[in-house]
Amino acid sequence: MKNKRIAMITVAVISLVVPALVAVLIYSPYKISSEYVWLSSIPGFNASINSITALLLLIGGVMAKKGNYTLHKVCMAISLALGVCFLLAYVTYHATMPSAIFGDVNLDGVLDADEQLNISGLRTVYLTILLSHILLSAAVVPFVLLAFYFAIAKEFDRHVKIVKFTWPIWLYVSVTGVIVYLLASPYYPS
């Protein structure tokens, strides 16, 4: 019982600290000064991580349905590890680089009237996808962690119950992460 309590507290703390840290880094006007050119490649790297994660989630889901739990475990463990890598890269990027502004063609950090006119309804589509991606990525964290905990604790009934809605949300977040990157990539500062 003590280990379960520690696990639940850990899940709660991670689930609160991670989104709070990300929000602070994104909305902070202060960035850590860095001269490393490779930092500008992080969004593409993270899109690759999201692509691989989506593929592994699909394979892992199929393997679970086929009863190949060994391959299912491998796919899910790699997906979780990739999620941690994504988060570390994401935090590094937003601590050092300004956020992209969708439609800011001249990359001056301002979406002027002409730029807004040029992208028209596409900005609404982008922001809708981005908002759903952000909200669901924050919301899914505790459920992913609980799903892993239940699997490790061999509470398979609870694991199956929670992954019925966690898995599709995690997949959606991974796929929309790639879509957001593809839509925003022309507007990332170099």
Rank of each mutant, 00 (worst) to 15 (best):
78 I>L: 13
78 I>N: 06
79 S>R: 09
79 S>H: 10
79 S>T: 11
80 L>D: 09
80 L>A: 13
81 A>W: 03
81 A>Q: 04
81 A>F: 08
81 A>M: 06
82 L>K: 10
82 L>M: 11
83 G>E: 01
83 G>T: 00
83 G>H: 00
84 V>M: 09
84 V>E: 01
84 V>D: 02
85 C>Y: 05
87 L>V: 02
87 L>H: 01
88 L>Y: 00
89 A>M: 10
89 A>N: 07
89 A>Y: 02
90 Y>L: 02
90 Y>G: 01
90 Y>R: 01
90 Y>W: 08
91 V>I: 13
92 T>D: 07
92 T>P: 09
93 Y>R: 03
93 Y>C: 08
93 Y>H: 08
94 H>P: 06
94 H>S: 03
95 A>M: 08
95 A>R: 03
95 A>C: 05
96 T>P: 06
96 T>G: 06
97 M>G: 00
97 M>C: 07
97 M>Q: 11
97 M>S: 02
98 P>Y: 02
98 P>T: 01
99 S>D: 12
99 S>P: 06
100 A>P: 03
100 A>I: 04
100 A>C: 03
100 A>F: 05
100 A>Q: 02
100 A>G: 05
101 I>V: 10
101 I>M: 07
101 I>L: 11
101 I>R: 07
102 F>W: 04
102 F>R: 08
102 F>H: 06
103 G>L: 11
103 G>N: 10
104 D>I: 04
104 D>R: 02
105 V>K: 14
105 V>R: 13
108 D>E: 04
108 D>W: 01
109 G>Y: 03
111 L>G: 08
112 D>Q: 11
113 A>L: 12
113 A>V: 13
113 A>S: 13
114 D>H: 12
114 D>W: 09
114 D>Y: 12
114 D>P: 02
115 E>C: 03
117 L>N: 15
117 L>D: 13
117 L>W: 13
118 N>P: 00
118 N>G: 13
118 N>C: 10
119 I>G: 02
119 I>Q: 01
120 S>T: 10
120 S>G: 10
120 S>D: 15
120 S>C: 07
120 S>F: 12
121 G>S: 15
121 G>L: 15
121 G>N: 15
122 L>A: 14
122 L>Y: 14
122 L>G: 10
122 L>H: 12
123 R>P: 06
123 R>E: 14
123 R>K: 15
123 R>I: 10
124 T>Y: 12
124 T>W: 11
125 V>Q: 06
